[in-house]
């Protein structure tokens, strides 16, 4: 109602004033939301705990599958066939055979592993020391590790394995690939499962945050009606709730990270031991800073989204003049 002089020279000042007003409104919305959260702290903590668990589950599974895939990645490199030679093969015969196999077009390189080398490597496995002590002689055969020429598919590899298995000096030929393929299939299935679980739990986060905020809206019904009567816009009414929802999501995300860190601490030693025993790749890692931030951002966004849907639905109902809304002259 109060008119002011609006010259071009005043524009910078007006823009600044509007920006300040906007920031003030947001600060008020945030403070308002914090005050309301503090007023109903137990309920909000409970919701945040539920969100934490809902978020920790898919995030934790993601870590597990990722670790599994890294194991797979480690095995992907040495795509190879192990040839265990017969006991009566001498090292000289074995080296000659290795050279002969190395000439084949499908073969890139052949590694010669002597019985002693094999034993030394085997000794590194925990718990086999005592078993070996019982044996008087080295039970391990000479092994040739055949690396195919370039990367090749499973079928051609299998064909090569069958061909090499037919050689007289070869006791058995093992293709490490079969394992790898099976493992890859398991991981792919797990990954798909996790995607579905993650989607369902994301929906749960949206509903939980929406429901928490719905209760808050009910508690502040009168306040909303009064503020609307004195000129509050939809944005003004929505703002503190959206902040509450986003903060709730953020708290859930932080809780999920905390839960996963605790779970990692609890299971870490056992997993490390398992991996060491089977000589498998490096231990699974925790989320990187970037992934942690992505998890927090997703959680915040889901909390905000749930709130937005709820507020949108309830704002329409909380319009003064609608049946059942008593505030008004």
């Amino acid at each position: 109602m109060t008119g002011g002089k609006r010259g071009p020279r005043r524009h910078g000042g007006r823009l600044r004033a509007r920006l300040e007003g906007w920031l003030r409104q947001h600060r008020r919305g945030l403070l308002d939301s914090l005050a309301k959260i503090r007023a109903a702290l137990p309920a909000h903590l409970m919701s945040a705990a539920v969100l934490s668990i809902a978020l920790a589950l898919p995030a934790g599974l993601f870590l597990v599958v990722e670790a599994g895939q890294r194991l797979l990645g480690d095995w992907d490199g040495p795509q190879r066939i192990s040839l265990y030679l017969t006991d009566d093969t001498t090292p000289a015969d074995a080296r000659a055979l290795a050279a002969e196999i190395g000439q084949r077009s499908a073969v890139g390189r052949v590694e010669y592993v002597s019985r002693e080398q094999a034993l030394a490597e085997f000794r590194q496995h925990a718990g086999v020391e005592e078993a070996l002590a019982v044996l008087e002689t080295n039970p391990l055969p000479i092994t040739l590790l055949v690396h195919p020429q370039g990367r090749t598919d499973g079928e051609r590899l299998t064909a090569l394995r069958d061909e090499l298995a037919g050689l007289a000096a070869v006791d058995s030929a093992q293709l490490d690939m079969a394992w790898v393929e099976r493992w890859a299939a398991i991981m792919a299935a797990l990954e798909r499962t996790i995607a579905v679980i993650a989607l369902l739990l994301a929906l749960a986060v949206v509903f939980v945050s929406g429901n928490t905020i719905r209760l808050e809206i009910e508690n502040r019904r009168e306040e909303i009606l009064v503020t609307r009567l004195i000129g509050a816009t939809d944005a003004y009414v929505r703002r503190p709730f959206l902040y509450s929802g986003a903060l709730l999501g953020l708290a859930g995300g932080l809780g999920a990270l905390l839960l996963l860190a605790l779970a990692a601490l609890a299971t870490g030693p056992a997993i490390d031991h398992l991996l060491e025993t089977y000589h498998l790749g490096p231990p699974p890692r925790f989320f990187s800073a970037g992934e942690s931030l992505a998890l927090l951002a997703t959680a915040t966004l889901l909390g905000w989204l749930g709130t937005w849907l709820t507020v949108q639905h309830h704002l329409v109902r909380l319009e003064p003049g609608r049946a059942g809304n008593s505030a008004g002259p």
């Binding site: 007003g21 906007w22 003030r24 409104q25 008020r28 009168e222 306040e223 009064v226 503020t227 009567l229 004195i230 000129g231 509050a232 816009t233 003004y236 505030a327 008004g328 002259p329």
Partner: peptide
């Protein structure tokens, strides 16, 4: 607007009740 049942908010002091229209308008 003035109502018979005054429609004040009891969760905040008098000052904040009176300030509400100005806060909404962003002063």
């Amino acid at each position: 607007l003035i109502f018979q049942d005054h429609n004040l908010l009891f969760d905040r002091p008098v000052f904040d009740n009176v300030a509400l229209p100005l806060e909404i308008a962003g002063h």
